[in-house]
Every structure is written in structure tokens, then in C-alpha cells.
Design a protein around this nucleic acid. Structure first.
Lengths: 204, 204
DNA sequence: TTCTAAAATTGAGTCAATTCTGTTTTTATG
DNA sequence: CATAAAAACAGAATTGACTCAATTTTAGAA
């Protein structure tokens, strides 16, 4: 019987994530003390460290939820892309960016990104890299789809192009979260302008 | 007379940076305790914090040295670029990448990047952003030069293109420092492959 | 040379993440 | 239902970055 123990475990996980999400949003990542998260989740400090290797991993679990939602939303665009290369890219990237601040504040993103570079081999570091990879793959899938439809030249190196587009978008997003006053519409406009160069180069 | 006081100050700065560089390389950023840096530099803990706002700023000073060297080396390429768009980009990017591990280990880069996203408004965060900006500007200058020579089409949006190339390179470099086993030649090959798409699009 | 205000240094103390060890709870077995 | 091993928990102790009030050093005026 794996009953009680497993149930309690899942329950504690949930309580910790809920408490942390609330506190991160409320007081910021640094401001949310482990002691307080523990109290609000009704577990001890030791238990938190039994579930997560460090404070960053708690944030990591929250980031994963967000990115997986974004990936899901992106699937629809890849399946039925707008009938124009520029719009197709803009729509997919739009989904990524518009969703991005749904659960996570800019400060939470900054911390998450920082931790993922700081500790690339921690559970969260690896998970974050995998998420980036999934996003890159989704952009590549869109390009492949556009090639299949005949909107993008067949001789284009889709794998390299997908990386190029993702890397540029991601870097722009990093700069975006670094500046509290930066706004989404301007971010999207800037990325559109950059992608225009590519769109001109790859269209049939 | 600005003598003694200024001299001692410069001397202490130098000793702190020297001690920190050695210890960061030896024990890693986390492993290098402020207490030990202070002892090795023959100043007190408090003095270190009088010179630098936090541990990250010490690393920041070292990063600035490195990046400024790279920027200097890049000037030569911009002044007399190879007579071919692909080679010109590859040469400039080659300089950036080949220099990058001269003073800084991958671990130091990871920390520096992490801090710059984590605390974008700290002295170091701002300096790091400015350095990125300078590198972007240098790539833009190269493109402008190539346009002047007639190797790149005049109607290309040079500003956006420069960002695109820098952002992609930078993101590739971030992934590179995140993986200890990653090697420079493979990094350069991958970036060359990505840039090939652009080169094809922008050549006259 | 002597003296004083300003500048700089010092290191013990604070604070919060993480570790560690003893205790409690759960499970499985007879 | 008793019990021993395994798993999970608790929270006091540790650790290391950073602060701050007291002390020392320097500059330069008298």
C-alpha cells in the first residue's frame, strides 16, 4: 500500500508550491524567507529541503508550470500556422511573450534565469535548459511546417534557423525582464523588426 | 597633494582584484570566501565592502577588464575587415570567443552572467549591460563598414541585424559556458552555420 | 610641529540559507 | 496487533555575505 505516505507527500509538495508562489509574488524571491514559506505551508524548514535541494528549485518548479503551459499553447500555432511567414513567427512568439508574465513576475524570471546559469547542473538548471530546448524545437517544427506548406524555401537550414530565431527572442526577453519599465508591445515590435530580415531571406 | 591617500587606494584596489582573481580561479566564485580574499589582499572585510558593494562587483571588475580587451581587439577587424561578409563576421566573433576564457573561467562567466540578470541595477549589472551594448555596437559598426565597402546591401536594416547577430552569438556563448565539456571549435562552427543563413540574405 | 575635521579602516555582530542529527511516523512482516 | 526497519520530519546549529559603530589614519591649516 503506497497510500498515506504518498498522499501526504503530494499534499506537502502542493502546499509548499502554493505558499512559495504567493510569497514570491508578494515579497519577491529574496524577500520570501524559507522560514516563512515553511510556516505558511505548515511544514518545517528541514522538510522543505527534503523536497527541494535549495530555494531556487522551488522557483524552478513554478517556472516549469508556466513554460509547459506556453508550450501547449504553441502547439496550436504549429498545427495551423497563419498563411504568411512573418505572421506565423509573430503569432508563435506572441504566445510565448504574452503568456510569460501570467504566473511569474519579472523579478521571478530574473531569479530563475540567474539560477539556471549559475547552477546549470542542479535539477532546476537542467530542467530550464530542457525547456529552452523544447521552445527551440517548437520553433523548428513551425519552420518545418512552413517548408512543407511551401511558404519557406526547402533549401533553408531549418535547424540553424530555429536556433537563431529562438536565441534572438530569448536574449530580447532576458533584456526585457531586466528592465522593469520595459513593455511587451515594444518588445514584440523590436523582435518583429529583427525577424523581418530573416523572413525576407527565407520566403519562397 | 593627492599623494598618499590616492596611492594607497589604488594599491588596495589592485590587491583586492589580484587576490580575488587568484581565488576565483582556484576555488571558484562560491568557494572564494570574502574573509579569505580580505586576508590575502591584506585588508579587512569592511574595506572590501568599502571598495565594492558586494562580492559580485569584485567579479564585475574582473569581467570588465576582459571585455574591454576584447573590444579593443575587435576594433582592428572593424577597421580592416576581411573582404567577404562571412569571413568578416567570423573573424570578429572569433576574437570575442577566443579571448573569452583568457582571464575568466567558465564558472566565473556563469556567475557574472547570473549576477547581471539577478541584479540588473547594481553597479555591475549596469556595467555588464553596457558592455553587451558595446559589443552589439561593434558588430553594427562592422556591418556599416561592410555596407560602405559594398559587400552588404544598402537596404539592410543594419541596427536590427547587428542585434540579431549579437543576441544569437551571446545566447550560444551562454549555453557554451553552462556546459563544462563544450569546446570552442564546435561553438564557432555552430555560430557560423547560423550566420550562413544571414550572410546569404544580406550579401550584394 | 601640532591639531582637527574628514576619510578610511576595522572586525564583531546580524541575518538568512542550508546542513545535520536526533525523533517521530509509516510501512511491512510475523 | 506488536515490532523493527525505512522514510520523513523537526528545528537547533552552522556558515558565510554583508552592516555598522568605534577607531585609526590622512590632509592641510595654523
Amino acid at each position: 500500500m503506497s497510500g498515506l505516505r504518498a498522499r501526504q507527500k503530494a499534499d506537502r509538495h502542493r502546499r509548499i508550491i502554493e505558499a512559495a508562489t504567493a510569497l514570491f509574488r508578494e515579497s519577491g524571491y529574496e524577500g520570501a524567507k524559507i522560514e516563512v514559506i515553511a510556516a505558511q505551508a505548515e511544514v518545517s524548514i528541514g522538510t522543505i529541503y527534503n523536497y527541494y535541494q535549495n530555494k531556487g528549485d522551488i522557483l524552478g518548479a513554478i517556472v516549469s508550470l508556466e513554460v509547459n503551459e506556453v508550450l501547449n499553447a504553441g502547439r496550436g500555432v504549429v498545427a495551423r500556422p497563419p498563411a504568411n511567414v512573418g505572421d506565423a513567427l509573430d503569432t508563435l512568439i506572441g504566445i510565448y511573450i504574452e503568456h510569460s508574465l501570467h504566473y511569474l513576475s519579472k523579478e521571478m524570471w530574473r531569479q530563475a534565469m540567474a539560477i539556471s546559469t549559475q547552477l546549470p547542473n542542479s535539477p532546476f538548471g537542467q530542467a530550464y535548459t530542457a525547456l529552452d530546448r523544447s521552445l527551440t524545437d517548437q520553433i523548428r517544427a513551425l519552420i518545418a511546417r512552413l517548408q512543407a506548406i511551401g511558404l519557406v524555401r526547402e533549401d533553408i537550414d531549418g535547424a540553424a534557423l530555429g536556433e537563431l530565431i529562438f536565441n534572438n527572442m530569448n536574449m530580447m526577453f532576458i533584456e526585457f525582464v531586466k528592465r522593469d519599465e520595459a513593455r511587451i508591445p515594444e518588445l514584440r515590435t523590436a523582435i518583429r523588426r529583427q525577424n523581418r530580415i530573416l523572413v525576407a531571406a527565407i520566403g519562397v
